[in-house]
Structures are given as C-alpha cells and as structure tokens.
Design a protein around this nucleic acid. Structure first.
Lengths: 171, 171
DNA sequence: ACCTGAACACCGTTCAAGT
DNA sequence: ACCTGAACACCGTTCAAGT
C-alpha cells in the first residue's frame, strides 16, 4: 500500500505522489486507495512514518559519542534518499511510534553519556532539532553552496562541542 | 504583486496560494500573473524572500548574547506568522539577499562575542540551522506536545550552553 | 508592455453502483 | 469488504489573440 507511494516518490518526487499515480502503480483505480487510507494527508503521513522506521540505530555497545555520530549519519542518509518527505518530519508531532523508537535510542545514548536524568529529554529535543535541521538543509537545498567535506567538518566540530558540553555536566 | 500572495497565504495557508486565488485577490485573470512572475515556483520563492526580509534585526548596541536571543525570537515570531512558508527556508539556498542580511547580522554578533574569525561562518551555519529547525518544529507541529514555557526554557538552556561554548573559545 | 479566453492535462474527493 | 465509473470543483500552464 505505502510501498507503492515510496516507489512513486523515489521516481517522481513528493509532488509526483498523487492518488492517481500511486493507484496506477498498484494497477488499480484511484478510488480504491480510499479503502486503505483516509485521504491523501493520511497517505503522506504513512510515507513519513516509513521513512522514520527505515533509519538504522547504532549498536548499543559502541561508545556514546560514536552512537550519536552514527545516528546523525543515519538521519543524513535517509534525508538524502527522500529529500522532500524528510522536510515533513517537522510538521508531524514527534510522538509517532517510529519517532519514539529513534527518540528512545537517543535517550539511552545520553544516559550512557552520563547526562543527568531530568535534562535527558530536553537535550534530546535540542539535538534532534539541530540534526533534523542540518540533514534537511543539506538535502533540501539550503546548504547548496557548501560541499560535503565542509558539512562533514561542520558536524565534527559540532560533535566535539556537544561532547565538551555533556561530559562536565555529568560530574 | 507578492503582497497579494502573502495575504492569501495568511488567510488560506500555503496550499491556498494558487495562481488563480492570487489573481482573484488582485482582481485580474490568472494568466496576468505570468507577466510578473516566471511560474508558481518563482512566486513562492518571492514569498519566502519577503518573509525573510520581514524579520527584525536587534540593535547592535545590545550585548551579543541579547542579540542572539533577539534574533532567535524574531525567527520564532515569523515562523508563527507563516508556518508553512517558513519550512521552505530549508529548500532555498541560504544565499539570497534577504538571507545574507540575516546572516551578516549573526556574523557581526559572533565577532563581537570574540569568536575567532575562521570559525565565524561555521558557527553561524550551525546556529542558524538549529534555530530554523527549532522555530520550524515549533510552528509546523513537531513540538505540538510541548507547551510554550517548556520550549522557552529549552532555548534558554541552549543559549546558556552556547554562551559557555563561545566565551572560553575567544580567549 | 500588459492583459484575456479558451483549452490541455492534470489534481483530490464524493457518490452511487457493482461483485 | 473491496473495487469501479462518472462527476465535481479545482489545479498550473500554453497559446493565440486582443489593447
């Protein structure tokens, strides 16, 4: 059902994802979709949820800063795969099941870094916001003037500051 | 020309901004718009540029951290006024004249904070990315589960860490 | 230079009808 | 329960024509 939508999106972009195009892809009449999805908004939400559940979580054995870096790279990779759908992450409440899965991975990572329990959710919000903003800027076009090495260096620099911010905090 | 588009957007959202609706607002036929704008993409770009030039820059006499806070508040205010158009900031290259105006204000602020010259552009990219991501999350719906005081506190907390990050750096 | 009318190829969605 | 055909009210855009 949603797989067809993802295929269409990969081929023709988010704007190409019309009820008619998705239906044609399945080989069915457009109106048939309304039996599996409430309306187009619902279909797009499903696609965004799929995108979120595709992002891979790092192995919990890794050191916490490696895990944070890996999570960032996963986000960037999925943003590159679906540039327009990624932007929609900012529209959907961050409380869907697929979003919670990622969020909990960040929580666990921050706890392992020794972040004090009450600040874990706050720091997660800030880090996720930054990382989603960065991945979206990179893949949607805001960073068009900057090449990949520059952006990689930006992130390394940021990670170093974040590490410095977290470590003294844990004492 | 673009004013009409902004009025329509404020009334019916970004999706309501159609060539036909904008034309009707001006009292003209839809095709007349094509003499002032290349296509719809061009019209939307114009709207986003307008949005950027509306954001107010803080007085340069203020202490640098106050200025940073004020810039953040300006961004949030304009995101609240135009939630969907704000998201499009992430799609447009950050090198339009209106975007440079804001960027240069951040540059000046960071210099006054004593940030070393080579890291000014990098830090600006990271801060803007975070701040745009935050304002977009707040106004587009990602932070729907969090109330305003919580988000304000998030930002204050972040500002405090950013301040701590910047000050030792300048020595 | 600026605007128009008619037309083309699309949309999302409803509704009654079919199996 | 699932799918269809026809229809409605929209889109962006082109093109020839008007002033």
């Amino acid at each position: 059902v949603l797989d067809a939508a993802l295929v269409v999106m990969e081929a023709r972009g988010l704007d190409g994802v019309s009820m008619r195009a998705v239906a044609e892809r399945i080989g069915v009449t457009p109106m048939a979709l309304y039996h599996h999805v409430r309306d187009k908004q619902d279909l797009v939400d499903g696609v965004v949820e799929r995108l979120l559940s595709e992002i891979s979580l790092p192995a919990p054995e890794l050191p916490w800063d490696e895990r944070l870096r890996a999570l960032g790279e996963s986000l960037r990779a999925s943003a590159r795969r679906h540039p327009d759908a990624f932007l929609l992450l900012l529209r959907r409440p961050a409380a869907t099941t697929a979003a919670l899965r990622v969020r909990d991975a960040v929580y666990a990572t921050l706890r392992d870094a020794g972040v004090a329990e009450p600040t874990v959710p706050r720091l997660e919000r800030l880090l996720s916001t930054f990382m989603i903003g960065f991945a979206a800027s990179e893949s949607a076009g805001r960073f068009a003037a900057h090449d990949r090495p520059t952006l990689n260096a930006d992130l390394e620099w940021a990670l170093a500051r974040i590490r410095a911010m977290i470590v003294p905090e844990s004492r």
